[in-house]
């Protein structure tokens, strides 16, 4: 069989295969046959043995599907990352509103902590008066 086409039909492939096994195929026909066996048109099982003989099964899949595989891989990672991120945000423990460390120990009692806050801010509020009194006292003795 002599053909000028780029792709073989399954029927044409059967005819070329017969010639291939008889050793009468041209380089062009063998090239067409390889292309056919590597394509999805040869899926289904009928041509599996022929694929194995011509050694095109694994190579053919790489030739036809590398781009799709790469895209699927990236998409898979993106989905996985999104799921991990969402789970992390959801599971992230929320910190209590009032936390104190006093003498190295942790406290979360709101009343205790707010009493400490009042005391601390009271000390700050007195700072100005304390400096003023001190200055006056020093002035008395200088």
């Amino acid at each position: 069989m002599r053909t000028e086409r780029l792709f073989l039909t399954p029927q044409e492939a059967r005819e070329v295969l017969q010639q291939y096994y008889e050793g009468t195929t041209t380089d062009r026909e063998e090239d067409l046959l390889c292309r056919f066996l590597a394509s999805e048109a040869a899926d289904g099982g009928e041509f599996d043995a022929d694929r194995a003989v011509m050694g095109v099964l694994a190579v053919g899949k790489e030739v036809h599907r590398p781009h799709r595989t790469a895209v699927l891989k990236v998409a898979g990672w993106a989905v996985a990352a999104s799921v991990i991120l969402a789970a992390g945000l959801w599971l992230r423990p929320s910190s209590p509103d009032c936390v104190a460390y006093i003498g190295g120990k942790r406290y979360t009692d709101r009343n205790l902590i707010m009493a400490q806050v009042q005391s601390t801010m009271g000390e700050l509020a007195e700072a100005k008066e304390a400096v003023s009194v001190e200055s006056q006292m020093q002035g008395l003795f200088n």
Binding site: D97, V99, A100, G103, G104, R110, Q116, T120
Partner: peptide, 13 residues
């Protein structure tokens, strides 16, 4: 630290 008081408050308080 034994000689430090650390207070952290937020929210309704």
């Amino acid at each position: 630290a034994k000689d430090v008081v650390s207070l952290n408050v937020k929210g309704s308080a």
